[in-house]
């Protein structure tokens, strides 16, 4: 007999309007590995099989935004096309397209504190931090900004209680089981681990960023 209850790898999404010119396909309300994988897979499927009338697709941590022209397209029709594609969504859509090595100088002002909070020496923390290949979970917060994860449960810390007014492009940040990289100067409440020369934003390039959601990344100690 066919087992109809075989576990589906991806959470069942909801389709909600975001204003009157966007629909959001939400695979979860908290960040989980499976919800994020589903987002990346679905965004990729939408690139292969675009929905007529949709002008832009933006994958987020746990949702995919579809923007349409409200004067031309109708959301009910787009939602129908979304459902057609959701039923065709499979694990193979989540295969990583690109791998990146990101040499990083771990000399940030919060490195010692982060290591101490996790009960490690700075060297042991860096080694643990770099031990796992991470995935680009999402982009879009700021030009070229990337969230990478997920770290092991032993490497989860909340954000700092205070915000640093400005950190430069190339700052490597750490919080919430993730490592993030800035590509423009930003204020941040995340812990500053160090810096990388890897520049993920160039307004004169097309496309202007290099890392895409789903890419795998390996942090290494810059030599």
């Amino acid at each position: 007999m066919t087992d109809l209850s075989a576990p589906n790898a991806f959470p069942v999404p909801t389709i909600v309007p975001l204003g009157d010119a966007c629909l959001l396909v939400r695979f979860g309300t908290t960040l989980t590995d499976q919800a994020n994988r589903a987002v990346i897979a679905f965004a990729r499927l939408l690139e292969r099989e675009p929905v007529p009338g949709v002008d832009e697709v933006m994958p987020n941590l746990v949702s995919v935004l579809l923007r349409f022209d409200p004067l031309r397209a109708h959301p009910a029709q787009i939602a129908g096309e979304i459902r057609l594609r959701l039923f065709a969504l499979g694990d193979s859509d989540a295969d990583a397209p690109a791998h990146w090595t990101l040499p990083t100088v771990f000399d940030g002002p919060d490195l010692e504190e982060v290591a101490t909070l996790l009960g490690l020496s700075a060297a042991a923390f860096v080694s643990a931090h770099n031990s796992r290949t991470l995935r680009v979970l999402a982009t879009g917060f700021a030009p070229g900004f990337v969230y990478c994860g997920m770290h092991d449960d032993a490497l989860v810390l909340p954000r700092r209680t205070s915000v640093r007014p400005m950190v430069p492009a190339g700052t490597v940040l750490f919080a919430a089981g993730q490592t993030a990289i800035t590509a423009t100067p930003l204020p941040t409440g995340w812990h500053v681990l160090g810096r990388t020369d890897f520049a993920n934003f160039d307004a004169s390039a097309s496309p202007p960023t290099r890392l895409s959601p789903g890419d795998t990344v390996q942090f290494t100690v810059a030599t």
Partner: peptide, 11 residues
Amino acid sequence: SLVSDAIVPGD
């Protein structure tokens, strides 16, 4: 602690 999500004009 909400997960970061898409913003649209008018939000």
